[in-house]
Design a binder for these strands. Structure first.
Lengths: 259, 259
DNA sequence: TAGTGGTCTAGACCACTTC
DNA sequence: AAGTGGTCTAGACCACTAA
């Protein structure tokens, strides 16, 4: 099947798409209803709906069932660079347990919140390789869901060797500890000062669970970030895996050209 | 509408999905046909097809019209890091014009090829900002489509200030010049040695044109890379914008934690 | 309660691939 | 020629939203 044979639904989608990209339909505006499009183009409602779902899969519109379909509004995009791990942001952090009376440094996450779950589990192959331990070895998992303006934006699951964090605030299941820098501060106190980070970045479509958890509209991919943190000696102290709603973030790296 | 109400099509999709993730259906294997599923589940072919298109949108299967649907096979993933720009890869490159008699250094791109289009055009806002010039100023655009095993993997459009590359091999429309390092070598000869790179990385669904050009299956997002190259003095000499098939690449960055 | 998107059945045809 | 995915009409019902 020629992927671009003009079928009625594709023609309708095309019209609407050009209305959107040209600005005739502004972000946030409501599109004609499926029944209205059906009437206008002399097709079935089913066919008109198909046109809408094409645009939804492209991420151009957002569907609010029962209400209508709307031109997608772009969120402000957060630029993520190495700075967000900067030492001065956690170096002098007093590790408190309650989110409310945290002194400062957490203005980084302003307007943001997070849930937290801590569990002792076993290292799978990926975690084991990253932390330099055996598969099945006990690791602490700190699972977080970050939110912004009351909507989830990304998850971040950190893994630590058991002996590295046993008894520390990291393992305290109460929320509040270790926003961005708390974990690093705790590790530092333990003599495991973070020195180097490796970030691996890739993108894919979300699983159904992720789509639900992150409230992703149809047509929104996710970016997967795998982060390994090591001491100056190269000893891995944290492995983290995060899933981000793609439209809300941008990763930025600046580096000198290597020899 | 509850996004997870179990409808017939979703139930079928769910069954197939678990067959795939569990390994009962191996990558490359053929799924039951729509008509067969319809018969098995007692639904319309239309409904069965809908189930398949759900999986396609998730990127789990690949559809070969007229032949069948198949469990998606994962490509080998290329890991992209700063090394690919390393000086030794282009420092001593003799800039030849024909791809065939290139001395070496291009083993980097083994099994790969590229098309090339050069044009003199006008800087849009984004390009102008990156290159530090006025909007509408003349820039050379070098548009490339990279292929691997005869399939396109990504595009890369580079932009240069006109005066920087006028008369150089970069502007020669014949293919062959400037695979990875050629452009850098030429700029170096002009006294504009690349020193620092900034890469901005984001992901989204492809436009219809991109999907066609990159032969993207349904449910494959793209990663957009914006690269700015500067001299030691901070003078921008190249701005490039690339679109990558997400499933074929991974970006990796290692850096010390900043202060 | 009226309007919205979402989904379904039943039946049909098209373009493509495979043999 | 048989089988495949893709799409369509016609008509129907459901769950949800908003007034």
């Amino acid at each position: 099947m020629n992927e671009n044979r003009p079928t009625p639904s594709r023609r309708i989608a095309e019209d609407l798409r050009s209305d959107i990209t040209s600005g005739r339909l502004q972000p946030g505006w409501k599109l004609p209803s499926g029944r209205e499009l059906a009437r206008r183009y002399g097709v079935t409602q089913n066919t008109a709906n198909r046109a809408l779902s094409i645009l939804a899969a492209e991420g151009l519109i957002v569907v609010k069932t029962g209400s209508g379909t709307y031109v997608r509004e772009s969120h402000p995009i957060r630029r993520l660079g190495p700075d967000r791990y900067a030492r001065h942001k956690w170096q002098n952090t007093i590790v408190t347990v309650h989110a409310d009376d945290r002194p400062d440094g957490e203005t980084v996450e302003q307007q943001g919140g997070q849930t937290q779950d801590v569990a002792l589990t076993e290292a799978d192959e990926e975690i084991a390789a990253a932390l330099g331990i055996e598969v099945g070895a006990p690791v602490y998992e700190r699972a977080r869901v970050m939110t912004r303006d009351n909507h989830p934006t990304h998850t971040m699951n950190s893994y630590y060797r058991r002996e590295d964090v046993e008894g520390t605030a990291i393992v305290d299941p109460r929320p509040g500890i270790a926003g961005r820098g708390g974990g690093f501060a705790v590790l530092s106190e333990r003599g495991l000062e973070p020195y180097e980070i490796t970030e691996d970045i890739s993108a894919r479509m979300p699983t159904t669970e992720e789509a639900l958890l992150l409230e992703l509209p149809a047509g929104e991919p996710v970016v997967e970030v795998r982060r390994t943190t090591r001491t100056r000696e190269g000893r891995p102290i944290e492995y983290a895996r995060g899933v981000h709603a793609a439209s809300r973030f941008l990763w930025s790296f600046t580096y000198p050209i290597p020899d």
